[in-house]
C-alpha cells in the first residue's frame, strides 16, 4: 500500500528524493497511476498552491516543491498514456519569441501538470509557428510568458494568430491585466497558482 499522505508531505516540503522513491515504489507495486496522481501529487500541488495564494508559502518554497513534484511526474509521465487516464485538458506553454527566461514558465508548467493537466512545454523563444504546432496537437489553451518589457509585445502576435481557435493566456514579470485587455488575451495571472485557477475556470466554462 502506498502511503499517499507521506507522498503529499514529501511534495509539499520539497523532498525530491523522497518523492521519487515513493512514486517509484508505488509504480513497482503496480499502484494505479491515476491514484498516484489523484491521491498524492495533485492534492499536494493544489494545497501548496492555495497556501501560496494565501501568503502562507512563498516563491522559494513553491519552486522547491515544484521541483520535487517534477521528480515524481517524470516517473509517471511515460506510463500515463497506457494507463487510460482521461486528460483534464491540454495546455501548451512557452516563453515568447525573443525571450529565454524560463524559470517562471517552468514553474507554471509543473503546477499545471501537478494540477492534473496535460502540458505541452514548447520551451523558450516560441514564435507563432511553434504555437501552431501545439494547436494541431490539440492544445485548448496557449500560455505565453515573457520576462522582458521588450519581448512582451510579441504576445499580441500570438493573440492575433489564434484568437478564436484557442484561448490565449499570458503572464510574466512585466505583464499586467491592462496589457492583457489591450491585446485581447483571454486571461492573465500574476502568479503561478493564479495561472492554474485561470486554466480551471477557462476549461470549466468551455
Amino acid at each position: 500500500m502506498t502511503d499517499f499522505e507521506a507522498l503529499k508531505k514529501a511534495v509539499m516540503s520539497g523532498k525530491r528524493n523522497d518523492v521519487a522513491a515513493i512514486v517509484q515504489s508505488a509504480i513497482d507495486a503496480k499502484e494505479n497511476i491515476g491514484d498516484i496522481l489523484d491521491k498524492g501529487m495533485i492534492p499536494a500541488m493544489r494545497e501548496i498552491g492555495d497556501r501560496f495564494s494565501k501568503n502562507e508559502v512563498y516563491v522559494p518554497e513553491l519552486l522547491i516543491a515544484a521541483r520535487a513534484m517534477q521528480a515524481g511526474l517524470a516517473l509517471i509521465e511515460p506510463l500515463l498514456a497506457a494507463s487510460g487516464r482521461k486528460s483534464m485538458g491540454k495546455i501548451a506553454i512557452g516563453t515568447v519569441k525573443g525571450d529565454l527566461h524560463d524559470i517562471g514558465k517552468n514553474l507554471v508548467a509543473i503546477m499545471l501538470k501537478g494540477a492534473g493537466y496535460d502540458v505541452i512545454d514548447l520551451g523558450v523563444n516560441c514564435d507563432v509557428e511553434k504555437y501552431k504546432g501545439a494547436l494541431e496537437q490539440g492544445a485548448q489553451i496557449l500560455a505565453c510568458s515573457a520576462l522582458l518589457t521588450t519581448t512582451m509585445p510579441y504576445m499580441k502576435e500570438i493573440v492575433n494568430a489564434f484568437k478564436g481557435k484557442a484561448k490565449i493566456i499570458i503572464g510574466g514579470a512585466p505583464v499586467t491585466q491592462a496589457f492583457a485587455d489591450e491585446i485581447g488575451a483571454d486571461g492573465y495571472s500574476d502568479d503561478a497558482n493564479g495561472a492554474v485557477k485561470l486554466v480551471d475556470s477557462i476549461l470549466k466554462s468551455a
Binding site: 516563491v59 522559494p60 519552486l63 522547491i64 529565454l100 527566461h101 524560463d102 524559470i103 517552468n106 523558450v124
Partner: peptide, 18 residues
C-alpha cells in the same frame, strides 16, 4: 555564457534560494 542556456542554472538557482 548565456546562463539560461545552461541546464544547471535553474537547479543552482532553486538550491541557492534557501
Amino acid at each position: 555564457i548565456v546562463l539560461n542556456t545552461v541546464p544547471e542554472f535553474e537547479y543552482n538557482y532553486i538550491d541557492a534560494l534557501m
